[in-house]
Simulated assay, not measured.
Amino acid sequence: MKLANPEIRNLMKEKHIPVYAVAAVMGVHENTVFRRLRFELSKDEKADFCRIITKLAEQQEK
């Protein structure tokens, strides 16, 4: 079975951003993030995830 949203999952791995950090920014539980990633996201939702992950990675570098 192929996982949905591989680009989001790979970006989190590449940037070393844990799911709980993304969930904290979104204001949801980390299980909610996993549930949202189960099915293919819209372009807007993917852009939001990418923006959050990139922002967290930049903060981590400082």
Rank of each mutant, 00 (worst) to 15 (best):
L3G: 09
A4N: 11
P6C: 01
P6Y: 02
E7P: 12
E7R: 15
E7Y: 12
I8P: 10
M12T: 08
K13N: 10
K13Y: 11
K13T: 11
K13P: 03
E14Q: 13
E14K: 14
E14H: 09
K15T: 06
K15C: 08
K15E: 14
H16W: 06
H16M: 08
I17A: 00
I17C: 01
V19F: 10
V22Y: 05
A23F: 07
V25F: 04
M26L: 15
G27F: 06
G27M: 07
G27E: 04
V28F: 06
V28Y: 05
V28E: 04
E30G: 00
N31I: 09
T32R: 07
V33D: 03
V33E: 01
V33C: 05
F34M: 10
R35G: 05
R35V: 07
R38W: 08
F39W: 10
S42K: 07
K43F: 07
K43R: 10
D44T: 07
E45M: 06
E45F: 01
F49H: 01
C50F: 15
R51Y: 04
R51F: 01
R51N: 02
I52Q: 01
I52P: 00
T54R: 01
K55A: 10
K55G: 01
K55N: 06
L56Q: 04
L56V: 02
A57M: 07
A57P: 08
A57F: 04
A57I: 03
E58G: 01
Q59D: 11
Q60S: 14
Q60P: 05
E61P: 00
K62Q: 09
